[in-house]
Structures are given as structure tokens and as C-alpha cells.
Computed example of a mutant assay.
Amino acid sequence: MTDANLLTDHPALYEARFPDPGHLAARWAAHCLRSHTAGPRVLDLGCGTGRDAAWLHRAGYDVTGADLSDAMLAHARAHHPGPEYVRADLRGFDLGAKAFDAVVCLDSALLYCHTNDDLDGLLASCRRALAPGGLLVAEMRNGAFFLGGTELLDAPATGSFTWQGTTYRHVTRLRVDRAAQLLCRRRVWTTDDGAPPVEQRSAWRLLFPQELRYALAAHGFTVLELHDGPGPRTEPAWRSGGPAPTGGADGDRLHVVARRT
């Protein structure tokens, strides 16, 4: 069994596993930017394959995509051109003199900040990158959900998909490391082409709504929205003209819009 990240090491496979033909995540982010009158200069932090950055670029934004993965950046430049793509560690980055009107951080990328120092590094970097009044827009797993919700932890999850004639199957187990406040995932991939199994381990910091408010305030941000949905990965999902957020925090996703003060 090899130890690798099958999906993030193979960006085309990642996009096949997580298709977003309607560009829901990017459209939700654009809705937040419009709702709070953000300017055109956008930093997509943790941009991954570049799908969302490229959609925002086509929508008229001046987009820079930043990621730590060379494989993801190469894929983004080749398959989702338009934005500028740069290598950066979200836990602490400095992109020079350019000031952004918004930082967008989607799909729990913010939760790769596993420690308080990591989180401080990200928020300090975002503040430094933003023009006064700029926005931070993020969506992520909701730590508060795991105070009572156990359905994601009770049993292994299985799934499969087929890409270019090969079927990929996975068994995924989640557990909570309460002392470290991490949601830990162990996923084993198998394929029908005779390749050895691939074990993938990853973790996300579990942030609670009030904890996130406190961290943002400490770094000079005012929270404008903080809620469990609807968003691009909720059920039902966000849709243009759909219901407004209720302000609750019971769901398994958390959405935040904060302004640099």
C-alpha cells in the first residue's frame, strides 16, 4: 500500500471526482463579493485546479490564484488560463505590493491551518494582502456540527467513480482528535487496473463559530456573515435568488464573510 494523495497529486482526477459543471462554488463566491460591494481584485487562496479562479476571471474579476501544490498550479495554468497563478503557503504568505479587494478561500482550505500559529499566520497574511475595507470570503466544515452530529463518524463511507476507463473505489473513515481539534480522515483507494491500493491521510482544523469570530476580530476583521448555509456544498445547495442565510450553525458547513477594518 502506497502513501500518497491520489487526488491532489493528479489534478485531472480530482476534477473528475469532484465535478462542478455549474460552477456553484465560484458563483456563490461572486454572489458574496457582489452583496458586499467588493472591488475587482481577487485572491483565490488555495485555488487548487484553478476552476473557480478561472470562472471568476471570466466574470470580470482580476484574479490571482495561489496554492502550495506545484501539480495543481501546473494544471491550472494549462487548463484554466486567465488568472495569474502563484505558489504560496496559506499559513503565511506575502504576494508583494499588490493590494486585493477580496480573498476567497473555498472548500475548507482555511482548515489546513491546524494550529493557532497557522491560523494567525493566515489571517495576518490576508490582512496584509487586502486593501482597507477588503473582504475575506470562506466556506469550510463546521466544528460545531460535531458537538452533536455523529453520522459522519459512525461508519466508514464508500464510493466509486470511473474515469478514462478505470474505476476508482474508496473506503473513508473519519475520526475527531479532540485534543488537537482536528477532523482526521483515512481514505484507501483501490482500482480495477491492478495497481496497489493508495492510502491517503489528511486532517482539517475544527473551528467553532465563536472561535472564528474571535480570531477574525483579533486580526482586524469585522464579521458580516457567519452561518451554516445555504452554500455551495450544503443540502439544499445555494442558488441565485434562493433563501437568505438563517444565521444558524447546526449544519456541517460554515460560511463567513468578514471585512478588513
Rank of each mutant, 00 (worst) to 15 (best):
R213C: 12
P230G: 03
E211Q: 03
G220S: 03
L212D: 00
E211M: 04
Y214A: 15
A203E: 11
F221W: 07
L212S: 00
S202T: 07
H227C: 08
L206Q: 13
G229K: 04
Q210L: 08
W204K: 09
R233T: 14
F221R: 06
D228Y: 04
G241F: 06
L206F: 05
P230W: 00
R233M: 15
A218T: 01
S240Q: 11
L206A: 12
A218E: 09
G231H: 01
Y214R: 15
E235Y: 13
E235A: 14
W204N: 09
G229L: 08
S240V: 03
R213K: 12
R205H: 05
R205C: 05
W238S: 05
Y214L: 14
E225T: 08
P236G: 07
P230F: 08
R233L: 14
E225S: 09
E211W: 01
P209G: 10
P232T: 00
G220Q: 03
R205L: 04
W238L: 12
S240F: 06
Y214V: 15
L224I: 07
A203Q: 09
L224M: 12
E225D: 13
H219I: 01
L206S: 05
Y214E: 13
S202M: 07
L216H: 08
T234M: 15
P236Y: 02
G241A: 02
W204H: 14
A215L: 04
W238A: 02
L216Q: 09
E211R: 02
L206K: 13
E225G: 02
L224S: 12
D228N: 04
G231K: 04
E225R: 06
G229R: 05
E225V: 11
P232K: 01
A215D: 03
D228I: 07
Y214H: 15
E235T: 13
A218M: 13
A237P: 15
A215V: 01
T222F: 07
L224G: 02
G229N: 05
